[in-house]
Design a protein around this nucleic acid. Structure first.
Length: 479
RNA sequence: GGCCCCAUCGUCUAGCGGUUAGGACAUCGGCCUCUCACGCCGGUAACACGAGUUCGAGUCUCGUUGGGGUCACCA
């Protein structure tokens, strides 16, 4: 039986790029080992959770192609996959702990504790407040408002072996009696995660390194319940370019941002996976390669800094190479970006003919839509500066001749057009340079474009001729 | 501050005792050329420091320094 791993986001916003990376590593492990990838929504904080966030996160995962075999929408044998619907499970588990004297009800209020914390801070600003254990041995009074605290051991150490970091040992003296259930009856993260990971038969918990500190608390809970803990794997952190915790102040951190920018799903995954994982010198991977090559042994320990430039390059690499982004996918993905430019329902044949001409000129799908614009807009948008500089009277005869050549070319192909133009320019002693720019502006409205003959072929004979003639008239009249 | 963790070019990384320390992004030159790109060629650029272990340390051990994480009725 393969491993069972999970991605457990709390629905308090969009899918963060770091969360996507965590999901990816879990997903890769499940895929590569024939295991199961579970998605579980950690919505025990009623104030912060929202259904919109669940929707946004699920949509982002779907867009990335990180499909889950158990979780929201698909269900599964261990449901519900929303923690807010599993309260009874946590309640039973906590009852057991209290009955066995491993946890206790605490009637200290948050206000009291906050006051103590503040008082200590005043006496010694550097001191760290620890819960004094006021209620640890007090008579149990379930009727009064209370939280539930775990009775932490004060001696020895709590150890676990991390698949990435190796053995991690934490002295128990630093462990306080942490809260596992709050006054409103909802479980806290550590408790809920442990109960669910056990109930869902999770075999490996992989998450960000910022969780490494509460892993001992979770191990303590496993021990208290008498359950075998899963394996753990912590991922090095993605920090901002300045080395701080990555937030939207430094860069776009929502997966959605990159989607809107026109990166491809695998392009995003490729950048994320190389952050902490490597396979020799290889930089660019297809989804299948990642599944085939992924291995915990190749995961790094050290944190890294997020680099938008590198990200952009990886995304471009995927967009550029047909073996990574098929023509069909490219066409389908660029359509929304064209539509945003009022170019809806463009003919599929023209689109698939045009894409190869702009592939290496567009670093994102958004740029691709710009680069494709003149293929579908009639007349093309004419850049005034290009017009003023290039469509001058002297260019008019050249444009007229080119129009004639287009009209008369026996075959409307790159090769035939190139040959015809070569013959003409040689006979007339004209430099290609001098006809190319006027023709380019005539055909595309701009001074930068794919090769002229490629553009003509995509446009077709009729439209090429029309645009050249229109430009010739414009040039003639511009004196 | 306590606890935990980390340390190779500016950035992501390869390296798992013997290498001219390699690749990629970025950057700087050049080539190609009908423009813009793509592509190609080349340059600058790293083992944090100090002790050990060893015939020999980027690689092993310890310390120092630096960086990060975490110490909630958030997850």
């Amino acid at each position: 039986m393969g491993p069972r791993v999970r991605f457990a986001p709390s629905p308090s916003g969009y899918l963060h790029i770091g969360g996507a990376r965590t999901a990816l590593f879990n997903w890769l492990w499940a895929k590569s080992q024939g295991g199961v990838f579970v998605v579980r929504i950690e919505d025990t904080d009623q104030d912060r959770s929202s259904l919109d966030s669940v929707r946004a996160i699920l949509d982002a995962l779907t867009w990335l192609g990180l499909d889950w075999q158990e979780g929201p929408e698909v269900g599964g044998p261990h449901g519900s996959y929303f923690q807010s619907e599993r309260k009874q499970l946590y309640r039973d588990a906590v009852e057991q702990l209290i009955r066995e004297g491993k946890a206790y009800r605490c009637h200290c209020t948050k206000e009291e504790l906050d006051a103590q914390r503040a008082a200590l801070k005043e006496r010694d600003p550097k001191a760290q407040f620890v819960y004094p254990g006021t209620c640890r041995d007090r008579k149990d009074e379930p009727a009064l408002p209370h939280v539930v605290r775990f009775k932490s051991p004060k001696q020895g150490s709590t150890d676990f072996v991390d698949k990435v970091f190796g053995e991690i040992r934490t002295p128990n003296e630093v462990q306080q009696d942490f809260v596992i259930v709050r006054t409103d009856g909802y479980p806290l993260y550590n408790l809920a995660a442990v109960v669910d990971d056990h109930a869902m038969d999770i075999t490996l918990v992989a998450r960000g390194r910022d969780h490494i500190g509460n892993t001992p608390q979770q191990v303590l809970l496993y021990q208290a319940f008498g359950w075998k803990p899963p394996e753990f794997a912590h991922l090095p952190m993605m920090l901002s370019p300045k080395g701080e915790k990555l937030s939207k102040r430094h860069a776009s951190v929502a997966v959605q941002d990159y989607r809107e920018r026109g990166y491809t799903p695998v392009g995003v995954l490729n950048y994320l996976v190389r952050f902490g994982w490597s396979s020799g010198d290889q930089e660019i991977f297809s989804r299948d390669e990642l599944v085939r090559l992924f291995d915990w042994a190749r995961v790094n320990k050290s944190d890294g800094k997020f680099d938008e430039k590198k990200f952009a390059d990886v995304a471009f690499e995927h967009l550029k190479r047909p073996e990574l982004t098929s023509l069909d996918d490219y066409a389908a993905w660029v359509r929304p970006f064209l539509a945003a430019r009022q170019l809806s329902d463009v003919p599929e044949a023209t689109l698939t003919a045009a894409i190869p001409t702009i592939r290496e000129r567009a670093r994102t799908l958004a740029e691709a839509a710009v680069a494709l614009d003149y293929y579908f807009r009639d007349p093309p948008e004419l850049d005034p500066q290009a017009q003023a500089k290039v469509l001058v009277p002297a260019a008019a005869p050249h444009l007229a001749c080119l129009a004639e050549i287009c009209r008369g070319a026996p075959e409307f192909s790159v090769h035939a057009l190139e040959e015809a133009v070569r013959v003409w320019t040689e006979r007339e002693q004209i430099k290609m340079k001098d006809v190319a720019q006027p023709a380019r502006v005539a055909l595309t409205g701009r001074t930068a474009s794919p090769g002229l003959f490629e553009v003509m072929v995509v446009l077709g004979r009729e439209r090429s001729v029309a645009r050249l003639e229109a430009a010739a008239r414009l040039a003639r009249g511009s004196a």
